[in-house]
Design a protein around this nucleic acid. Structure first.
Length: 203
DNA sequence: TATAGGATAGGCT
DNA sequence: GCCTATCCTATAG
C-alpha cells in the first residue's frame, strides 16, 4: 500500500535535503490514458536566488521560470537546448524559488508505453536515463508546467516505502553546468550508488 | 527582429 | 569518452 507524499515534505526550506529525500520515491504519470511509473534514482537541487546554476539566480523572473516562485509542490517544466523537456519539483514556501530536478528513474510500470514513446525497444535501462529522456518516456512536456504534485491526476509522487542508508546514496557535482564559481562544484546531485539507471554513473 | 547561449542526448572515435 | 546538432528563450537594439 503506497500513498502520496504530504505537502509539508515539499514546503521545507532545505532543497538539498528534499533532493536527497526524493531518492527512492515513486514517480507516476497518467498521460494519454497510459500509466507509467518508476523509482527516482537521481536528483539535483537548485537553490535560487544565490545559486548561479538556478534559473532563478539573482531573483531572475521571466514568464518561463515564474512557476519556481510558487509554494512547494508545483511542477516546473523547462525546455533545455530547445528540444529536451525537464521535470522539476518546486520546493519551499511561496516566493522562494528552490527546485529539484528529477534526472533519472528506474521504470517498473508501463514500460511498454515508455519504449513506444522513446522508440527504444532493446535498452530499457536507457528509457529514463537523464532528464530529457525521462520526460519523453513519461509523456511529460511543457504543457504540464504548473501541475500540482498532490492534486494532479496526470503526475504525482508516492512513498514507495523503500529506505536507503546514507552509504547507498552518493553525492556529486551537478551535471552540465556551464560557468565557473563556487556553485559549480557543490555536491548537490544525488544518486543511488551502483544503480544501472543513473545517468553518467561514474561521476 | 536578430542573435547568443543553454540543468542534453546520441552517435561516432 | 568526446563532439556537436538542434531550437526555444531571453535580451538587446
Amino acid at each position: 500500500m503506497t500513498k502520496k507524499i504530504p505537502i509539508d515534505f515539499y514546503r521545507r526550506d532545505d532543497v538539498v535535503q528534499i533532493a536527497l529525500d526524493l531518492i527512492g520515491k515513486d514517480l507516476y504519470t497518467y498521460i494519454e490514458g497510459k500509466i507509467c511509473a518508476g523509482t527516482i534514482v537521481e536528483t539535483e537541487a537548485y537553490r535560487g536566488p544565490e545559486d548561479r546554476a538556478s534559473h532563478a539566480f539573482n531573483n531572475r523572473r521571466t514568464p518561463s521560470n515564474e512557476m519556481m516562485y510558487r509554494a512547494g509542490g508545483k511542477v516546473y517544466m523547462y525546455i533545455c537546448y530547445g528540444i529536451h523537456d525537464m521535470l522539476n519539483i518546486v520546493t519551499g514556501a511561496e516566493g522562494c524559488s528552490h527546485a529539484v530536478l528529477i534526472r533519472a528513474i528506474e521504470p517498473h510500470t508501463g514500460i511498454e508505453h515508455m519504449r513506444e514513446r522513446r522508440k527504444l525497444y532493446n535498452d530499457d535501462h536507457r528509457l529514463c536515463q537523464g532528464p530529457g529522456s525521462l520526460a519523453k518516456a513519461m509523456g511529460l512536456n511543457k504543457s504540464h508546467n504548473g501541475s500540482d504534485i498532490l492534486l494532479s491526476d496526470k503526475i504525482w509522487i508516492e512513498d514507495s516505502g523503500k529506505k536507503f542508508s546514507a552509504d547507498e546514496i552518493k553525492a556529486s557535482a551537478r551535471i552540465g553546468l556551464n560557468f565557473d564559481g563556487p556553485y559549480k562544484m557543490i555536491p548537490w546531485r544525488f544518486y543511488l550508488k551502483g544503480n544501472n539507471y543513473v545517468s553518467r554513473s561514474n561521476l
